[in-house]
């Protein structure tokens, strides 16, 4: 305990910061492992290819998200298509 500590008493220690950062990272990492199956990027790419056969859409037209609701996982699919003008 150096006497200098008096002047930095309110500053969180770097170890404390490390722990807080890790808790966020790890929670995110574990949620990611649960919520995002490996096939999602491929599914997204293939869906985009199929849609493009019929409609001209941009790279970001297909948006996939997985949400967990209790025991069920919900695969949410959003496809943005340009409004059709006759």
């Amino acid at each position: 305990m150096a006497w200098m500590d008096i002047f930095r008493a309110n500053k969180p220690s770097t170890a404390q910061l490390a722990k807080e950062r890790l808790q966020v990272i790890v929670a995110h990492q574990r949620a990611g492992a649960l919520h995002a199956p490996d096939y999602l990027p491929k599914l997204q790419k293939e869906l985009l290819e199929v849609i493009r056969k019929y409609v001209a859409v941009g790279e970001d037209a297909v948006n996939i998200e997985v949400e967990r609701d209790g025991d069920t996982e919900i695969l949410e699919l959003n496809i943005t298509v340009p409004s059709s003008k006759n």
Partner: peptide
């Protein structure tokens, strides 16, 4: 270093993992 707050403690690592 743990005592000085410069390193994660055993408890910290156990908590996280």
């Amino acid at each position: 270093r743990v005592a000085r707050g410069e390193m994660l403690s055993v408890e910290d690592v156990k908590d996280i993992l």
